[in-house]
Design a protein around this nucleic acid. Structure first.
Lengths: 183, 183
DNA sequence: ATCCCTATGTATAACAA
DNA sequence: TTTGTTATACATAGGGA
């Protein structure tokens, strides 16, 4: 898109590289936003600019707040159905953890820059049994769905949320440091 | 882009949502790939599909392997210059850790879906002094640049690299679990 | 999901400020 | 660096297999 077809290779001029980055970053963030909205999914993205400035983009929290809003505006009956569903999902999560189906991951090949696939055996996940147990206990709160208005429940959910975000912030820190060292 | 302008709202039909996701995912990954190549930067991205299938994209390792290749093909003199530069960067990293400049982060507002800014005070980074020290010791290896062909050095770098990747895999695991719980 | 197709909406290259 | 303009290259909506 542009007056000329751009060569797919590193832009030499640092000045031009910066401006190109700035424009395309805007574009890709917009794409991510749209995709997340249209398909109601979560996306997280980290970009390190040519001048090492990190950009973090994520939609991680959107679903939760939307769900909360919807949830609080639903009838008791609907909430009860939702609760049943959540329970089923939880059960499935535990089942899944006992299965052997690999989780497929698409990723960029280190050298050739093409998308390839990797998988994590679920046996690996077993080692995180403790983590699962914690999450299960968090979910206990959801069982009394009729009382989800309760401030305590909301606090649990907020904390849960906050930990997701700090998680991402930590990653960012590490990546930023690596970035500077790996010159 | 398409026969009609698409409404910017969630696509109701799950079938259509899936196909739209699949098309746009391809597009956004291509964009990321191009941006990383053109501007020689690192990008990492996680997408959770409408059916919970996670996709991980990252360019984290590309720079390192490129740098390694270039490095091994440079003259001793060039290597010496590179070494001096690396040392300077390291010093700057330590300085930075003592400064108060915030690191700016752009991110999606939880509710409104718009990009806003946050910052991490560098004082926070101080708490990670230990981490910094570890990285510093890894860097010691780079000081004998003339001997970077040494297998031991390469091993250190590979381990360093591997830890970045496993880091990302862990995040993926956590996000995947949260995703299922937060229905 | 994925692939093909083509009409159209979008992103952006080049340039100027 | 970011902003604006215009001409073009690209991505993708809709629809069918």
């Amino acid at each position: 898109m542009g007056r000329k077809k751009l060569d797919l290779k590193q832009i030499e001029c640092p000045k031009e590289r910066g401006s190109k980055y700035s424009k395309r970053k805007k574009g890709i963030l917009k794409k991510a936003e749209e995709l997340a909205l249209l398909c109601d999914i979560n996306i997280m993205m980290i970009l390190i600019s040519p001048t090492e400035k990190p950009t973090l983009f994520h939609t991680r929290t959107r679903s939760l707040s939307q769900i909360l809003k919807e949830f609080l505006s639903t009838s008791i009956q609907e909430r009860e159905e939702r609760r049943a569903y959540t329970t089923k999902v939880l059960e499935k999560l535990v089942e899944t953890n006992d299965a052997e189906d690999p989780i497929v991951i698409d990723y960029l090949s280190p050298d050739r820059g093409e998308v390839i696939q990797d998988d994590i055996k679920v046996t690996e996940l077993r080692e995180n049994r403790k983590l699962l147990d914690e999450k299960t206990s968090i979910l206990e709160g959801w069982k009394n769905v009729a009382e989800v208005n309760d401030l305590g429940q909301l606090n649990i959910m907020e904390n849960y949320l906050a930990s997701s975000i700090s998680h991402i912030k930590n990653i960012l820190k590490v990546i930023q440091e690596e970035q500077q060292i790996m010159i």
